[in-house]
């Protein structure tokens, strides 16, 4: 699993990585990490390794972004792969997710 979290419960920057196969069967792990990350003021999302992604995973990211905005956390993207980009745009979610500019995979 390519997910790793740093910083633990204390405030500071938390990084949440996403696995290559980021689909419905693999979402619970990231779901837990995202829930923990909301305690941090700065959150770094890394979707650079995502190769396959589905609506369930994107929906979770959307929920997370909305929650983080509501709480005033800063969310940045460390990376977003082309499949992640394409899927988010196709579902009309790219803007809400505040994805960074597309980069070559």
């Amino acid at each position: 699993m390519g997910s790793k979290s740093k910083g633990g419960a204390s405030k500071g920057e938390v990084r949440v990585g996403m696995p290559a196969d980021f689909r419905i069967a693999e979402v619970t792990d990231v779901h837990r990490q995202l829930g923990e990350a909301l305690d941090a003021s700065q959150i770094l999302l890394d979707g650079g390794a995502v190769d396959r992604i589905d609506t369930a995973a994107l929906q979770m990211l959307v929920v997370f972004q909305r929650e983080a905005q509501k709480r005033g956390n800063t969310v940045n993207w460390a990376g977003a792969s082309a499949p992640l980009h394409d899927a988010a745009s196709q579902l009309g979610l790219a803007q809400i997710l505040a994805l960074p500019a597309k980069q070559p995979a």
């Binding site: 619970t28 779901h31 829930g35 929906q59 979770m60 959307v62 929920v63 909305r66 579902l91 009309g92």
Partner: peptide, 24 residues
């Protein structure tokens, strides 16, 4: 042209990631 509807989306705590709450 795709426009996502987020009106039924729950909070992250309440979310069951395997359920669909989005609409288009």
């Amino acid at each position: 042209v795709v426009e996502a509807r987020l009106d039924r989306v729950p909070t992250l705590d309440a979310l069951d990631p395997t359920e669909c709450h989005l609409a288009w």
